[in-house]
């Protein structure tokens, strides 16, 4: 079969969506429960620094840490970035500033959003305070965002690596026992990513031919094997396949299994047979359902042919063809 004109590359929407479920260590558990109770907590390292948001292990020494302290809901912006076009799921839907905020009493900064009228209203060193979410359940989003605080401004010089600004010095971190009723022990963070999947040239050619009730494999120029379905490369020779070869329509059952569990959203009565089928002319078996024969009569070597549903773009299933079974030797290399 000669090279057909390349059909336009197929593509289809693909959404990956999952609830990301994580358990919490004792420090994270206290911190996120604290947010629910509007009590911002940090953790003190052995050299006296206060980390907010707190972590379970010292980022410098890797030592396990757990001495909790309460810090203020006010703090200082250490750096910022104006986001003119908020993206889905970001904390605010109107333009806002991303900020790193060092809460008073802390030595490290927390990332969040700052609700401000515009970039001219934001600067490093500005004073901000937490705006709590109306509904809180123990997550970083219990902080709705930060908002400008009316307290004295630290100015751009408020950001110093070697010491705290004046306001932070005034607000020392206070010991906290981390005890709350009904501690949060885990988070569920929903995640959704949207893609547009395109299968590439070889699979587009295969799917386009299949819609016309033809099964077209591709031949390796080196070992001459015909791959069905083709994926563009020979996995043995590592070279591109290009020559298209029509195979089938009939084929041989090389092996099979009996399915006894009904799949969700699949309108097929169990038990049924799912089989590997080596189409005539193909060097790789594909898999499909076998119908038109009682499940306990399907056997290796059974000759089958495709059954197309009305308007179907691919075979609905394969059924026995009216011919004798194939010899084992004819398909033993394709098992």
């Amino acid at each position: 079969m000669s090279s057909a004109p390349a059909p336009e590359a197929l593509s289809a929407p693909l959404t990956v969506e999952f609830p990301f479920t994580r358990s919490l260590g004792p420090v994270q558990s206290a911190f996120l429960t604290g947010l629910r109770e509007r009590v911002p907590l940090g953790v003190r390292t052995s050299d006296g620094r206060v980390l907010v948001p707190p972590v379970e292990y010292d980022p410098v020494t890797a030592e396990e840490i757990g001495e909790l302290v309460e810090v203020a809901p006010t703090g200082t912006v250490t750096t910022w970035a104006w986001n003119p076009a908020p993206r889905r799921d970001q904390p605010l839907s109107t333009p806002f500033a991303w900020v790193l905020v060092r809460l008073d009493g802390a030595d490290t900064a927390l990332l969040h959003a700052l609700d401000a009228p515009g970039p001219e209203a934001v600067h490093t060193g500005m004073r901000v305070r937490i705006r709590w979410a109306a509904e809180r359940g123990g997550a970083i989003t219990d902080i709705a965002c930060f908002e400008p605080d009316d307290g004295p401004d630290d100015g751009p010089e408020g950001r110093q690596d070697d010491g705290r600004d004046s306001s932070a010095q005034a607000a020392e971190a206070r010991p906290h026992d981390g005890r709350f009723a009904d501690l949060v022990t885990g988070i569920v963070a929903p995640a959704r990513l949207d893609y547009r999947y395109s299968p590439g040239r070889a699979q587009t050619r295969y799917l386009a031919a299949l819609a016309e009730h033809k099964t077209v494999g591709e031949r390796c120029p080196s070992c001459r094997k015909v791959y069905v379905p083709p994926r563009g490369a020979c996995p043995t020779c590592g070279v591109a396949t290009a020559e298209q070869v029509e195979v089938g329509p009939r084929g041989t059952v090389t092996t099979y299994c009996v399915v006894n569990i009904k799949a969700k959203n699949l309108d097929i009565e169990v038990p049924y047979v799912y089989a590997h089928i080596a189409l005539d002319g193909a060097d790789l078996a594909l898999h499909a359902r076998i119908g038109g024969i009682p499940y306990d009569q399907v056997r290796m070597g059974l000759r089958v042919e495709p059954v197309w549903a009305e308007g179907g773009r691919y075979p609905d299933h394969y059924r026995p063809a009216d011919e004798p079974d194939a010899d084992y030797d004819a398909y033993k290399e394709l098992l």
Binding site: L24, Q28, H112, I140
Partner: peptide, 17 residues
């Protein structure tokens, strides 16, 4: 996943900080 991912801070925004 605890403190950052739920806020969806995108790569350009983090570089801007």
């Amino acid at each position: 996943p605890y403190y950052l991912a739920p806020l969806w801070p995108d790569s350009v925004s983090l570089a801007a900080l």
